[in-house]
Design a protein around this nucleic acid. Structure first.
Lengths: 222, 222
DNA sequence: ATAGAAAGTACTGCATACAGTATAAACTGT
DNA sequence: ACAGTTTATACTGTATGCAGTACTTTCTAT
C-alpha cells in the first residue's frame, strides 16, 4: 500500500480508552448521574463503563485538572460540590466573558455567522413555544457558546466552555417556573436584536442583565 | 448510623506520588526544561524524577486538563506550543481578568490587604534597582495574582492563575531590554497609586494599558 | 547510489498484581 | 448495653508486564 510517507495529517480519530471515557464521565457528572459529593468507586464505575481502572483513573485525573472532580488522598475522586457562592462567582465570570465577547463579536463576526446565530435563536424560540425544556436548554447553551466564539478569542471561549460545563447541571434547573423562562426568552430577543444591529454596547448591556437575571433565576434552586 | 464523626479536615498533606510530580512537572515546562513541542518520554522522565510511569502518566493527564500538555494518540504527551496569536489571546484574557478585578479590588479589599500589596511592590522595585530579574519577575507575578485575588472572585483568580502559568515562560523573556523593563516598573507605580487611592477606574485603565504594553514587550521575543 | 521493503527498536496504552490505608464489622471487658 | 479495641474488608496508589503501534535502520533490487 502506498503509505503516506511524510506529513500526512492524523486520521483524526485513533481513540484511546481514556479518551472515550473522558466525555462520558464528564456527561455523567453534568447530568447528575454522579451527584455532587459522590465518591467514585473506580472498580465499580470501571466495570459499568466496560474499562479497566487505568484508563478510568486517567480520565479522572483530567477532569480533576478541569476542576470538576476533587482528588482526596487515599479516598479517591469525589465529584466536586459547589456552594451558592461558587455558583454566583461562576456566573459572574461567565458574565465577564460574555460581555467582553459581545462587544468583540459585533465588530468581528461576519454577516453569515450572525445569520446562523439568528437561525439557532429562532429554533430555540420554537422549542420554547413547545415547552421542550431540554431542546431549549441545549440551544440556549449553543447560542451563548457560539456568541463567545464569535468574539474571536479562543482562550476566552475555552474558559467560558469550562465554566459553563461546571454550571450545566445547576443551570438546567433554573428555568422551571414559567415566568422565569419567559423572561429569559425575552432577554434573548433583545440580544439578537442588538447583535443584528451590531450594537456592541447594547449587546453587552443585555448580556450582563441576562446573566444577572440568570443568577436570580438559579438562586433559589440551590 | 451517625458516622458524621469525620467532620475533621484532612491533615492537609498526605502526599501521593502524582501529587508530588505534578508541580515539578509543571515547573519543568514553565521553566523551559521541557521545551514546547517536546515529546515526553515516560520511562525516561519517570526515571529522572524517581517515580514509575503510572504516577507520572497521571500527572501528565492533569496537566493536559490544565492545557499545558497535549495528548497525541500513540505518540504520547507533547508539551504544548503556543503561537504568537495564542499568546496575544492569553494576554488579552489576562487583561480582561485584571481590569475586572481591579475595579472590584478597589471596593472590596481591606486596608491591610492593600498595605501588604504595597509592601510587595516596594520590594519588587528594590529588586529592579538591583537588576535581579528572577526575583523581580516572581514578585511581579505575585502582585498581579494578589490583585486579582483581592477582586474577590476565586473563580476568576483561578482561571487567571491558569493562564498566567501558561504564559510564565514567555513572559519571563519579555523584560530583557532595560527600557522595556523600566516602562513596566513605571506602570506598576501608577497601579499602586490608583490602588491606594481606591480609584477603580484609574486602576483598571492602568492595568489595561500595562497589559497592552506587556503584549508589545513580549511580541518580538517570539 | 536510491527507492522501496523488511526487520528491529522503542515507546505508548492498557491490564493486572500487590501493598498500604481507611472504613466497617466483630469482639472484648466493664 | 456500650465504649474501646481488634480484626476484616474494600478501595486506592503504585509498579510491572505485555501487546500494539510508530519510528529507525538495514537490506534488497534496480
Amino acid at each position: 500500500m502506498a503509505q503516506q510517507t511524510t506529513d500526512h495529517v492524523e486520521p483524526i480519530h485513533k481513540r484511546t480508552l481514556h479518551g472515550e471515557v473522558l466525555p462520558r464521565l464528564r456527561d455523567m457528572i453534568i447530568e447528575g448521574v454522579l451527584e455532587a459529593g459522590t465518591r467514585i468507586n473506580e472498580t465499580e464505575l470501571g466495570a459499568r463503563l466496560g474499562v479497566s481502572r487505568t484508563p478510568l483513573r486517567e480520565a479522572i485525573k483530567t477532569l480533576a485538572g478541569e476542576g470538576l472532580i476533587e482528588l482526596v488522598t487515599s479516598k479517591g475522586a469525589v465529584v466536586r460540590r459547589f456552594t451558592r457562592t461558587d455558583v454566583a462567582n461562576m456566573l459572574e465570570t461567565i458574565k465577564l466573558f460574555e460581555m467582553s465577547a459581545a462587544r468583540a463579536a459585533c465588530t468581528n463576526a461576519t454577516d453569515a455567522e450572525i445569520k446562523a446565530l439568528v437561525k439557532v435563536h429562532k429554533t430555540m424560540v420554537q422549542e420554547y413555544r413547545k415547552r421542550d425544556r431540554l431542546s431549549y436548554y441545549k440551544l440556549n447553551q449553543e447560542i451563548h457558546s457560539e456568541l463567545v466564539r464569535l468574539g474571536g478569542n479562543p482562550v476566552i471561549a475555552d474558559l467560558h466552555g469550562l465554566i459553563q460545563a461546571r454550571l450545566k447541571r445547576i443551570r438546567y434547573l433554573g428555568n422551571q417556573e414559567p415566568t422565569k423562562w419567559a423572561g429569559a426568552v425575552a432577554e434573548h430577543e433583545e440580544m439578537i436584536k442588538a447583535l443584528t444591529e451590531r450594537d456592541g454596547n447594547a449587546l453587552a448591556e443585555v448580556m450582563g442583565r441576562h446573566m444577572d437575571q440568570t443568577l436570580l433565576r438559579v438562586k433559589d434552586t440551590l
